[in-house]
Amino acid sequence: MTDRPSILVPIRVLEGESVPEGVPELLAHAHVVMLGYHVIPEQTAPGQAQMQFEDRATERLDEYETMFEAAGATVERRLVFTHDGQKTIDRMTAEHDCMAVLVPNATGAVEDVLVAVRGAVGIDRLARVVAGLFGETDASVTLYHIAEDEETDEDVGTLLEGMVNRLKDQGVDASRIETRIDRDREALDAITETADTFDTVVMGETDPSLATFVFGMPADQVADRFLGPVFVVQRDPTPNEDEE
């Protein structure tokens, strides 16, 4: 049981967001950190919203908790009233040591998983999430890499092979692993397009840059366009823990 990856599942619990179809099954092998949160405007004190909405939110979270547990997951939950949803999600991820955050979208039975492998950085965590979630299922795992100009085929081969080996070590049957490489494509478009034929996407978190500041995090953009569930694997928090 210790191998269950912790996955944060944020749900805007009072705005009609619920646990979409297929998500409990998708997380059957995970340790689910269920975050019910409610974003309130600055004119309102968080305690004020709590006074009025806590009972209703708790009722719904009870329901969702049962759904996750029935599917086989272990569940931990929090209900947070906040002015800043992103801060709450980031804090929860750090406090509960979550390997990945799920953008919860509906899905059917999961047969094909697309894993976007960006580079060697963070590959350990990526492998642990994929192996933990899908190691004991029959789903096929496709490792997808978009090569840049200066990357040789050899580089790419080494990278993906490393990932395959890690997955095998953690109990993923090698026959279920495929690899796929594309060149000369804009990463975001490529992932979104390729994802169409898959049931779910696992990808890494990118470093915040000006582009992500303007257009939002790539993972969110993928989630918006793909419309299926996306796991965003978080960077290892230890090196830059003391920001601010």
């Binding site: 968080p46 305690g47 709590q50 806590e54 708790t58 939950r77 929090r78 209900l79 947070v80 009233f81 906040t82 002015h83 800043d84 801060k87 709450t88 804090r91």
Partner: peptide, 11 residues
């Protein structure tokens, strides 16, 4: 608060 209910500090 109890039952794992939290109020976020954001200022």
């Amino acid at each position: 608060h109890d039952d794992d209910v939290e109020l976020e500090r954001t200022i």
